[in-house]
Amino acid sequence: MNAQPAVVGPTVLAVANQKGGVAKTTSVASIGAALAELGQSVLLVDLDPQACLTFSLGIDPEDLELSVHQVLTKGSDPAEVIIETEDGVDLLPATIELARAEADLLTRTGREHVMRGVLEDLAASGRAYDWVLLDCPPSLGVLTVAALTAADGVLVPLQCETLSHRGVGQLLDTVHDVRRFTNRGLAVWGVLPTLYDGRTNHARAVLETIAETYDLEVVEPPIPKTIKFAEAPAAGRSILATSRTSKGAKAYREVASNLLARATR
């Protein structure tokens, strides 16, 4: 009798930086769409109470009765909350209600494992994905820790400016704690340089400083600064749909290919 092949779960990547304005949500939407173009099945999870990812994919959070908040705090079936988007990725959306989740989960036993449990429930229900990208809130609270506990790796989008990397040490401290207590296998996949202006020596110098200071891999290529990114959320699509041939779209496609190669090696 032949042995059944082992079921391989999705690659779960948390995209985290407690500093806002680093193109974190743009990176989640764009990498997700690029992975979908490469034939991967992708679930994006919006864990930010501001619901920017949900809005940027063409969904008005105010129109939603169910969101990731009910999934995390009330045990709602995630399969009933997931929305298919025009970018070829599925979305577990957020609403402003998620702002209450920190308080709701704070006193709950095993709160760090709540996101991992959601992904296990999805797998058990037959919803199979190749990738799950977790868009973390700009803080190091309960939701971010739950995302890191559920993840195989963490990707850190970082604006190429002098002050932008001051919070990286705090994030790495949190990653260290998560490794010790809730997710021994969590790996730092590296820094993704965003809002990059290749015309300045300063941007490259900041990048080199980060790599040396924190001994982190830099995920290439850097994502260029372009107005096209600001236009995409207003259209409710990622830049891969709104400006397919732009430098930004090309960069995210290359990043996605590099992440896919890493996941499969």
Rank of each mutant, 00 (worst) to 15 (best):
Gln50Ala: 10
Gly32Glu: 13
Ala211Glu: 15
Gly117Glu: 05
Phe229Cys: 04
Gly39Met: 04
Lys247Ser: 14
Val7Trp: 05
Gly185Thr: 08
Thr242Leu: 00
Ser164Gly: 09
Leu119Asn: 13
Leu66Pro: 05
His69Leu: 00
Gly32Met: 11
Gly248Val: 03
Asn2Lys: 13
His69Pro: 11
Thr25Met: 05
Thr149Met: 05
Val191Ala: 03
Pro78Lys: 05
Thr182Lys: 05
Lys228Met: 11
His113Thr: 12
Thr245Ile: 06
Thr245Cys: 09
Leu155Pro: 06
Val12Cys: 03
Gln40Glu: 04
Val156Met: 07
Ser76Lys: 14
Asn183Gly: 11
Thr26Ala: 15
Leu172Cys: 10
Glu86Ile: 01
Gln18Ile: 05
Ile82Ala: 02
Ala146Thr: 05
Arg127Phe: 09
Asp215Asn: 13
Pro222Asn: 02
Val114Ser: 08
Val68Tyr: 01
Ser164Glu: 08
Asp121Lys: 14
Leu66Ala: 15
Ala151Arg: 04
Thr25Leu: 02
Thr209Asp: 14
Thr182Gln: 10
Val68Cys: 06
Ala51Lys: 03
Leu44Thr: 07
Ile59Gln: 01
Gln70Cys: 05
Gly21Val: 02
Ala249Phe: 06
Glu217Thr: 14
Thr26Met: 07
Asp121Trp: 07
Glu231Ala: 10
Pro49Tyr: 00
Cys52Thr: 08
Ala232Pro: 12
Ala230Leu: 11
Val12Trp: 02
Leu92Asn: 10
Pro193Gln: 00
Asp48Asn: 08
Thr11Ile: 11
Leu53His: 03
Ala251Pro: 12
Thr182Leu: 03
Ala230Pro: 11
Asp121Gly: 10
Ala211His: 12
Asp135Phe: 01
Leu260Pro: 04
Ala150Tyr: 04
Ala94Lys: 11
Lys24Asn: 12
Leu134Asp: 06
Leu57Phe: 00
Ala103Ile: 15
Arg166Tyr: 10
Ala251Leu: 09
Glu97Ser: 12
Ile96Tyr: 03
Leu216Asn: 11
Ile227Lys: 13
Ser76Cys: 09
Gly75Phe: 01
Thr245Arg: 15
Val81Asp: 07
His165Gly: 06
Lys74Glu: 13
Glu254Met: 11
Gly190Ile: 00
Arg116Asn: 07
Thr73Cys: 15
Ser125Ala: 15
Leu259Ile: 10
Pro93Gln: 09
Ile210Leu: 06
Arg127Ile: 02
Asp135Cys: 06
Ala146Arg: 02
Arg199Ala: 04
Val12Glu: 00
Leu105Gly: 13
Leu47Gln: 06
Thr200Lys: 12
Leu91Asp: 09
Gln170Ala: 12
Ser41Arg: 14
Glu220Trp: 08
Gly110Val: 03
Leu216Ile: 02
Gly190Val: 01
Pro221Cys: 11
Gln40Phe: 03
Glu62Trp: 00
Asp215Met: 09
Leu259Thr: 08
Val68Leu: 03
Gly88Val: 09
Gly58Met: 05
Ala187Phe: 04
Leu155Asn: 10
Val218Ile: 15
Arg179Lys: 12
